[in-house]
């Protein structure tokens, strides 16, 4: 039973990660490969706080989000000046730097990471069962979804999509493209970091591998499979892609190569959807990635 709840927990966390990345990729046309890095920042800040200072849920979430904002500032200031493929490459660079920090700093415990994170507390209540933690993850996903919906349906959301279509035209209308991109980049990082907080509390032990480049690619795979520019698609794909390896357990695959088979199927999905179905499962547009 606990395992089923854990899978549900992962679905909720990846839904949050995918929604927040979709705001960049699908709505604004910013193909970021640094989402796992932002996720990791939240996770590590939470682990460090909980191990050393406080495991108050609200406080750790807020401070992790603040860390996400700080790091996204460092990433955004240079990266957002670049267009197209060069933005992608710059975020890939930052992703690798962040990973290298996790891997090599003494503070983050190097390759072994950090473990023994205590259960989070909120107003005297301790979330110590996996069900309670699952509910937290669902709550975060719901908040993220609702706010993202609000953002995309607002005049600001209209500007996001306008930036995706034609940046020069947006600036000719008196709107600062940089401000628009900057705002959404930070918003996205806040939710990725918050997802990191809940991830840390869920599994109580973290290591750098969970926040590596291939993790960023996995998150973008969810966005593309679900459909760029579709929040519902991101939720649906998060659920399906987390379920996929579970479903494959019914197949006669040797346990030894199961992780590789999982990675290969994700890779195949990514290739299939980019090649044959670029609107994703329920996306609006064929070619959002412009």
């Amino acid at each position: 039973m606990d395992y089923v709840i854990y899978i549900g927990n992962l679905m909720a966390l990846y839904a949050t990660l995918a929604i927040s990345l979709n705001l960049l990729v699908g709505y604004t046309g910013l193909i970021s490969i640094a989402q796992a890095g932002m996720y990791g920042i939240g996770a590590y800040i939470t682990a460090l706080l909980a191990l050393n200072f406080t495991h108050d849920l609200l406080l750790t979430t807020l401070l992790s989000a603040a860390g996400g904002v700080a790091v996204s500032l460092v990433v955004a200031l240079p990266a957002l000046r670049l267009r197209n493929e060069y933005f992608l490459i710059a975020t890939m660079g930052f992703q690798s730097i962040i990973y290298s920090l996790f891997m090599n700093l003494e503070l983050t415990g190097g390759p072994n990471g950090l473990w023994g994170v205590p259960h989070p507390q909120l107003f005297g209540f301790t979330f110590n069962t996996s069900l309670e933690k699952f509910l937290l993850a669902v709550a975060l996903a719901v908040v993220c979804y609702v706010l993202a919906l609000r953002v995309t349906r607002s005049p600001f959301g209209r500007l996001l999509r306008a930036v995706r279509e034609d940046q020069t035209a947006v600036s000719s209308l008196g709107k600062s493209v940089y401000r628009i991109k900057f705002s959404i980049f930070i918003f996205s990082a806040i939710f990725a970091a918050a997802a990191g907080t809940l991830y840390t509390y869920s599994i109580t032990a973290i290591d750098p591998v969970a926040f590596a480049l291939d993790e960023s690619i996995f998150i973008i795979t969810i966005v593309i499979v679900g459909g760029t520019g579709s929040l519902n698609g991101s939720v649906l794909a998060a659920v399906l892609l987390i379920l996929l390896p579970e479903a494959m357990k019914f197949l006669p695959i040797p346990a030894l190569i199961a992780p590789q088979i999982r990675q290969i199927s994700y890779g195949l999905l990514l290739v299939f959807f980019t090649r044959f179905r670029r609107q994703g499962l329920i996306g609006e547009y064929q070619d959002v990635l412009k």
């Binding site: 953002v151 607002s154 005049p155 600001f156 500007l159 306008a162 947006v170 209308l173 008196g174 918003f187």
Partner: peptide
């Protein structure tokens, strides 16, 4: 509509607050 200047909901924060 995107071109109308100085819209209230044009900033992220305003659009979040609703």
């Amino acid at each position: 509509a995107a071109a109308i200047p100085q819209q209230r909901g044009e900033s992220l924060l305003a659009s979040l607050l609703g």
